[in-house]
Computed example of a mutant assay.
Amino acid sequence: MSDTVKKKVSISIKVSSSDKKRAAELFDSLGLNLSTAVNIFIKKSISEGGLPFDVKDPFYSETNQTELNKRFKEVESYRDVHSHQLLDNEN
């Protein structure tokens, strides 16, 4: 192995103290420390050629989109839609 592969370097990341505590507790229950867990994440990302999990916006989840489509149909058919009278702002 070359020296660049063997040599360890430090990295610095910023996370909330509560996230760090929760992650440390989780990894400790798995027999890992934070450094080992982060190294596993990095190695897995390299082997996968990207993040080793999907990163998605929950707004676009199938459940949310189904609910939104249902509500759009209700509005289009005027079911469960009540008219409201707007009040003028008095200055």
Rank of each mutant, 00 (worst) to 15 (best):
Asp3Pro: 05
Lys20Arg: 15
Asn39His: 11
Val38Leu: 15
Phe59Leu: 15
Asn89Glu: 04
Arg22Ile: 00
Gln65Phe: 00
Arg79Tyr: 12
Thr4Glu: 13
Leu34Thr: 04
Thr63Cys: 11
Val9Lys: 12
Arg71Leu: 11
Ile40Asn: 02
Val5Leu: 13
Gly31Ser: 12
Ala37Pro: 03
Val38Tyr: 15
Lys6Asn: 03
Gln65Ile: 14
Lys43Asn: 08
Ser17His: 05
Val38Gly: 11
Ala37Cys: 14
Tyr78Lys: 12
Lys6Asp: 11
Thr63Gly: 10
Lys56His: 13
Val38Pro: 07
Leu30His: 14
Ser10Tyr: 04
Asp80Thr: 05
Ile42Leu: 11
Arg79Pro: 14
Phe53Gly: 05
Asp3Phe: 00
Lys21Cys: 02
Arg22Met: 11
Ile42Ser: 04
Asp88Thr: 09
Val15Ala: 13
His82Phe: 14
Arg22Asp: 10
Ser61Asn: 08
Ile46Phe: 09
Ala24Met: 01
Leu34Lys: 14
Glu67Pro: 00
Ser16Leu: 00
Gln85Phe: 00
Asp88Phe: 00
Lys14Ser: 14
Ile46Gly: 03
Lys20Val: 02
Phe72Ser: 04
Asp3Asn: 11
Ser18Gln: 09
Ser29Thr: 03
Ser35Pro: 01
Asn69Trp: 09
Asp80Gly: 13
Asp3Cys: 10
Arg22Ser: 06
Ile42Met: 10
Asp3Thr: 07
Thr4Gly: 07
Ser61Glu: 04
Thr66Gly: 05
Glu90Asp: 06
Leu30Cys: 15
Leu30Asn: 10
Ser17Gln: 13
Asp57Gly: 00
Leu34Val: 06
Leu32Trp: 13
Ile42Pro: 02
Gly31Ala: 08
